[in-house]
Structures are given as structure tokens and as C-alpha cells.
Amino acid sequence: MAGWPTRISRSALGPTYKNQRPVVRPDQQVGANVINLDFWTVAGMAGVCPQAFAVVNGGTGAFIARNETWNASGTAATPTTTRNAAGSYTITYPASVLDESGQTVAINLYGASVAPQTTSLSLFGTALATSPNVITVRVRNTAGTLTDSNFLLLVF
């Protein structure tokens, strides 16, 4: 099975573990209940947590900060961001990355959420996964006019 960023199920992590003997030194031994809970939690989070985040400068379209769950080693290709026009941006992630074992895994983004980074209530944003590795962002004012603003992007 390919690894991250493939969204995993609990069964992909192996069987439900059982202790061969009772845990007598919990400060030195890990019980099956702990491992099972960890695997359950990781599998659940894989389906609902953001796969990436970015803070983008609305004026230039450049990243202010970003990270991706599939880039734990820091060796994956860097995504690109393009300011298409005022308030219109495209963020392109690599089409595939290497998982923890070196296998090529396709990026398959489902959607995104965007929040303009402003203290004003006069801006709102929309984001859409327009292909498996591309997110399109629009930031508008209350009149509906596209306008530049720094934004936070959560990618799922």
C-alpha cells in the first residue's frame, strides 16, 4: 500500500493489537490499547484534517508561510502560487510526491477553505479544488468586487 498522502483507514494500519502479557511497567511498556487508540486517531484524522496550509500575500501572491503533511522530510517539490488578477489566485501543488518509503503517490485534494487575514468584516473568500492538485482562491469585498488581501488557506 502506498503511504502518505494516501488517506488511510484503520484497517490499513494492521490488525487490532492484543497484549501477549499484561502491562506491568506502563512507564516502560506500551499496551495494545494505546497503540490501537493511536492508530484509530491517525486514521480518523487522515480523513478530516487539512493536508496543507498556506498564508499568502494578497498583493504579490507569494507565500508568507506554508506546509504540507506529505512533506515531512522537506524534500517534496514546493507548491507555486500565482496572483492572476486582483483577488484571484491559483495555488498549484505537485501532481505527485514520494511517500515515506519512496513510492510515488498522487496528490488528490478534495477542497479548501479560505479566510482573508484582516480585522475588517468587509472581506470574504472562496476556494475550490479545480483539479486534484490545484486550488483556486477568490477574495471579495462585500460589494462582490475581487480585492487583494492576505489569506489563510486550509487544503483538504
Rank of each mutant, 00 (worst) to 15 (best):
M1L: 12
W4T: 10
W4Y: 02
P5R: 00
T6L: 03
S9I: 08
A12M: 12
L13V: 04
L13M: 07
G14D: 09
G14F: 13
P15N: 13
P15E: 09
T16P: 09
Y17D: 06
K18N: 10
N19W: 08
N19P: 01
P22Q: 09
V23Y: 14
V24H: 11
Q29S: 05
G31N: 11
A32N: 07
V34Y: 03
N36V: 04
L37R: 14
L37F: 11
D38A: 14
F39S: 07
T41L: 11
V42F: 14
G44T: 05
M45W: 07
M45A: 07
G47L: 12
V48A: 04
C49E: 14
P50S: 11
A52S: 13
A52I: 10
F53Y: 09
F53D: 03
F53I: 01
A54E: 02
A54L: 13
N57I: 05
G59I: 01
G61I: 01
F63P: 01
I64H: 06
I64Q: 01
A65M: 13
R66S: 11
N67F: 03
N67T: 05
E68G: 10
E68V: 02
E68C: 15
E68D: 07
A72C: 08
A72V: 09
G74I: 13
G74Q: 13
A76Y: 02
A77N: 09
T78R: 15
T78A: 12
P79T: 12
P79C: 10
T80W: 03
T80A: 13
T81W: 00
R83I: 12
R83P: 04
N84H: 00
G87Y: 03
G87A: 07
Y89W: 02
P94D: 10
P94G: 00
D99P: 05
S101Q: 06
G102V: 06
T104W: 05
A106V: 01
L109S: 04
Y110I: 11
Y110E: 11
G111F: 03
A112H: 00
A112K: 01
A112T: 02
S113P: 00
A115Y: 12
A115W: 09
A115P: 03
A115E: 12
P116C: 11
Q117G: 15
T119K: 05
L121A: 12
L121Q: 14
S122Q: 04
F124M: 13
T126I: 10
T126A: 09
T126E: 07
T126P: 00
L128M: 15
L128Y: 15
A129P: 07
A129G: 11
A129T: 06
A129Q: 14
A129W: 09
N133Q: 12
V134E: 12
T136G: 06
T136H: 05
R138D: 04
V139G: 02
V139T: 15
V139P: 01
R140N: 12
N141R: 06
N141P: 11
T145V: 09
T145N: 06
L146K: 05
L146Y: 13
S149T: 06
N150A: 13
N150Q: 09
N150T: 03
L152E: 05
L152F: 04
L153Q: 06
V155N: 00
V155K: 00
F156G: 09
